[in-house]
């Protein structure tokens, strides 16, 4: 029984870290991993999702719809930004760093000025359960399920829908796609919007468990970039396995030596991966296949 409860504790903590990494990183995996836009405003899409979903929940909308609404609004904001700013910079990746960083600062400070230094949270729903003397949050299981569902949904979108095929074609060989009659500028906008919506969804999902402040996006960004860099360009061959490996590293080290060790472990993992596998896990898996 002691062994079983220990095993459950480890699986739960790993699952929790996995969910956080996957949900933080999915949007960035689309925008940075696939499209190559180094989006430093990723955290602010998360902020947008969190604030919108919390406001909706305070206004009486049921939580699941509030969360989806958060994702939707973040997606629309993303599409607008793509149309107005980002699309002019596809050929200038370094400039996008500066621009998205600027957008991030404007969004953070704008939120502080307009909405004040914090927003009251809605509280975490569902309560807790006990296994072997330890209490666990039920909502955290929901987050794990949401992470898996998000991955499944993305897989369906990118491999089973016409939009997915067009998006992959547009990003891999844009001029051929265009020659075949694909409206590539529309596809770019939709793909960027999808990435932003995923970030907003992460924000909406984590909002009930966190402190809602204008800088909250920043707490996701390091984990998101670490996961995407370790993963490489592909969401399924890269982001998902990277999140799984990093989750084991983080949960293991945190349980053994505390949060600091967990954070160090994550960063050391990135350094090692970049050194050994410059194209991330995606590159490694694809090479093995070929």
């Amino acid at each position: 029984m002691d062994f079983l409860s220990g095993l459950f504790a480890f699986l739960y903590q790993t699952g929790d870290a996995f969910a956080f990494l996957v949900l933080s990183a999915c949007g960035l995996a689309v925008i940075f991993g696939m499209m190559g836009v180094i989006n430093l405003a990723h955290g602010e899409f998360i902020l947008c999702g969190a604030y919108v979903s919390t406001t909706a929940a305070h206004l009486g909308l049921p939580l699941p719809f509030s969360i989806l609404l958060g994702g939707l609004v973040a997606g629309l904001v993303g599409m607008l930004l793509e149309r107005v700013v980002i699309r002019r910079l596809y050929a200038r990746p370094l400039d996008t760093i500066v621009v998205t960083w600027g957008i991030s600062m404007i969004a953070t400070q704008g939120t502080l000025i307009l909405l004040g230094p914090s927003m009251q949270s809605t509280g975490t729903p569902f309560g807790s359960f006990m296994v072997g003397g330890y209490g666990y949050s039920i909502y955290r299981l929901v987050l794990m399920a949401a992470a898996v569902a998000t991955l499944a949904l993305l897989w369906v979108i990118f491999t089973r829908t016409r939009f997915g095929v067009l998006a992959r074609a547009t990003i891999q060989v844009p001029h051929i796609a265009e020659a075949l009659g694909v409206d590539t500028s529309l596809i770019y906008m939709l793909t960027f919007g999808l990435g932003a919506a995923l970030a907003g969804l992460a924000g909406g999902l984590y909002a009930p468990t966190m402190t809602l402040v204008p800088t909250m996006g920043a707490t996701f960004v390091i984990e998101a970039f670490v996961t995407v860099v370790v993963g490489g360009a592909d969401i399924f061959l890269g982001t998902a396995p990277a999140a799984a490996i990093l989750a084991v590293v983080k949960a293991g080290l945190t349980s053994w030596q505390g949060q600091l060790a967990g954070q160090i472990g994550l960063l050391v993992a990135v350094v090692l991966v970049i050194r050994v596998l410059p194209r991330g896990l995606t590159g490694f898996i694809l090479r093995e296949r070929a």
Binding site: A9, Y12, Q13, D16, A17, F20, G133, Y134, G135, S137, R140, M210, T211, M216, A218, T219, A251, T254, S255, G258, Q259, L260, G262, Q263
Partner: peptide
């Protein structure tokens, strides 16, 4: 005793360490 780096927002494992 556990020291948390500034900016950390996820405490699931810390909570379990305390329960233990």
């Amino acid at each position: 005793e556990e020291f948390i780096p500034l900016g950390v927002s996820q405490f699931s494992q810390t909570i379990q360490n305390i329960q233990k």
